[in-house]
Design a protein around this nucleic acid. Sequence first.
RNA 1: GGCCACUUGGCGGAGUGGUUACGCAGCGGCCUGCAAAGCCGUGGACGCCAGUUCGAAUCUGGCAGUGGCCUCCA
Length: 444
Amino acid sequence: MDLFLYNSYTRKKQIFIPVKDDSVTMYACGPTVYGPGHIGNGRSAIVFDTLARVLRYKYKNLIYVRNITDVDDKIINTAKEEKVETSFVTKKFTEEYHNDFARLHVLPPDIEPYATDHITQMIDFIKILIKNGNAYFSESHVLFNVSSFTGYGELSGRKTEDMIPGARIKVASYKKNPSDFVLWKPSPNNEVGWESPWGRGRPGWHLECSAMIKEHLGETIDIHGGGEDLTFPHHENEIAQSVCCNDKPLAKFWIHNGLLRTNKLKMSKSLGNFILMKDLLKEYDGEAIRLAILSSHYRQPLIWSSDLLIQSVKTLNKLYSSIKGYDLEVSKDECTPDKKVLKALYDDLNTPKALAEIFSISKKISKSENKVELTQSLIGSANLLGLLNFSSDDKKFKKTSESNIDYIKDLIEERKIARVKKDYLESDRIRDILIKLGVEINDN
RNA sequence: GGCCACUUGGCGGAGUGGUUACGCAGCGGCCUGCAAAGCCGUGGACGCCAGUUCGAAUCUGGCAGUGGCCUCCA
């Protein structure tokens, strides 16, 4: 079965054929660790994790790289405000991201490079760009000369002359051209920095990805991904740097996930309308959040709401109850994905369609003679989406906070006694309380 | 101003030139002390206006609305 993916670069759905037959390379832009992650960061991680799972299923080898940006002005500013070292900030939030992602059942990437571990590679990268005439030194900065690269703007579909220079950020004096971007910038002695041929300084944002891709995956990779908002300028600049440095295309496929919205507006740190992963995870299980994200196609904008989450919790409970008992008879490696589910996923990661097929298997189980077989197919399919990670005996998918558990257990016990006494008035009263606490009662 | 998306039932959300998507919620039934779950059944939709066509929610054009990007962002 062929895999099709929508390539942002060509704006078409195309058949995916890796550069090397059995080995696939994928790079996704990871977070800048200057603050806690919001659910938009989570969407991106979940989308590329799901794609990685599908690629791993189809191909023998996948090398999936997701970076950590641990040098950046925002990190420096946070450290200043909190009066701590930048390494304290980056360590703290890297850990938070790792925790949040794990609870969303996002598997760790094969390689997770840190920008600060690749300063040498970045300096070498700049040297080549200067030598090739694509970069210049000006007022302690090294800048990429956009006019030296004819392919500039092809990914994002824009021309430099269409853009309004300084529309949001005023044009710096050291730039020859408003579109030029920083490869290296000076650092004062009291800020994080590294020695370089251009003085003590630090790299510009876009450079790390180009340098780390080259280091870990090679000059041309199969898939480069990230949020839609990174298309311009970040990915456009990566292409410019890498193509000019290596004289080869950077990536065969560009994959971008759509942005999350709250009400009408995109969720973003700058607008302040974001929902933190860690806050959401206090109230909902990660699997329900993951289901909520995958219930929409990855390229579509998704309006985030509590209704969506409540629906996901219910749906997940139904899936678990359909395999209740049967899942204990199967081992994970006997579980292979259903053909129709695979077909949906191979069609540009159509997770809503894949979920519809999963529901259809789930519905069949109770009526079927081959309950175990269908359970295997259901679990195998759901696992490919990072769902149904627990056994049906675990109650982890319920929307219940840890602190309530003892109280809930007591209530359930009291209700049992009331029912034995046939005091149904009392048992119904307790059930109402439990329902309000988000606990569903299943008497059989 | 330039460029790019999107618009499907109460809500979420796929897909297709003619036939049930699916999920949640609703309604009717079986089951149950009553519920829930499960099972059976069921109503309800394709932004607006033209065009192409035997037939358009699907293709084409126009319009409207919503959103994104134009050097912070996933």
